[in-house]
Amino acid sequence: MKTYILLFRGINVGGHNILPMKALTAILEQCGYQQIKTYIQSGNVVLQSPNRPDQLMVDKMADSFGFKPQILVLDQAEFNRAVQNNPFKASESKTIHFYFLAGPPTVDATKLEILAAPNEAYQLINQVFYLYAPDGIGRSKMAAQVEKCMGVATTARNLNTVNKLLTMSQY
């Protein structure tokens, strides 16, 4: 059995794409996944499976909830690398955000430079965009535009959430 981290994109936000974690767990169990753990309502799942989670679970969710959620699936090694590659380890957890990319980016470096506040720092390593936003993510012009600058779908998690998922993935 391998451990996988599933990062759901855009669920339970603003009353849209409602996906209760208890119901999600039931669907994942129907798909044959084991040791399923969820973290907060925004779609963070750690599970075990002999095979990488696939389209079957998305189709079952569409049948049950009427929408197909976008899900980024990382195996434990990929997730661990993302954590190890964090270039902002010395900063406060709430100021660091990981944007996991759904595929290889087409980076608009000029736009990133324009959007970055003077005290913000960022780095793209493999398929993770790291953002240090000391004034908070809500005040960052870059935070809201990362996906456009990457040219590919992303889903963001703060360092506190990433660390919690890392802990949860240690079966």
Results as ranks from 00 to 15, higher is better:
Thr3Ser: 07
Thr3Lys: 07
Tyr4Glu: 08
Tyr4Gly: 04
Leu7Ser: 01
Phe8Ile: 05
Phe8Glu: 01
Ile11Arg: 08
Asn12Val: 05
Val13Lys: 09
Pro20Asp: 06
Thr25Gly: 01
Leu28Trp: 13
Gln30Asn: 14
Gln34His: 11
Gln35Asn: 14
Ile36Asn: 08
Lys37Thr: 13
Thr38Tyr: 02
Ile40Glu: 10
Gln41Phe: 02
Ser42Trp: 01
Ser42Thr: 12
Gly43Gln: 05
Gly43Asn: 06
Asn44Met: 01
Val45Thr: 08
Val45Asn: 01
Val46Pro: 04
Leu47Ser: 03
Ser49Asn: 09
Pro53His: 03
Asp54Pro: 00
Asp54Glu: 11
Gln55Arg: 10
Met57Asp: 01
Val58Asp: 06
Asp59Asn: 12
Lys60Asp: 02
Met61Glu: 03
Met61Tyr: 02
Asp63Phe: 01
Asp63Thr: 12
Ser64Ala: 15
Phe65Gly: 07
Phe65Asn: 09
Phe65Cys: 03
Pro69Arg: 11
Gln70Gly: 13
Ile71Arg: 06
Val73Ile: 15
Val73Leu: 03
Asp75Cys: 11
Glu78Leu: 06
Phe79Trp: 09
Asn80Arg: 10
Arg81Glu: 13
Arg81Gly: 00
Ala82Cys: 11
Gln84Phe: 05
Asn85Gly: 00
Asn86Ala: 12
Asn86Pro: 09
Ala90Pro: 00
Ala90Trp: 00
Glu92Thr: 06
Ser93Ile: 03
Phe98Cys: 02
Tyr99Ser: 13
Tyr99Glu: 04
Leu101Pro: 09
Ala102Val: 04
Pro104Asn: 14
Thr106Asp: 12
Asp108Ala: 10
Ala109Thr: 14
Thr110Ser: 10
Thr110Arg: 13
Leu112His: 03
Leu115Phe: 12
Glu120Val: 11
Ala121Val: 00
Ala121Pro: 00
Leu124Ile: 09
Asn126Ala: 15
Gln127Cys: 06
Gln127Ala: 10
Phe129Gly: 05
Tyr130Asn: 07
Leu131Ile: 12
Ala133Val: 08
Ala133Thr: 15
Asp135Thr: 12
Asp135Trp: 03
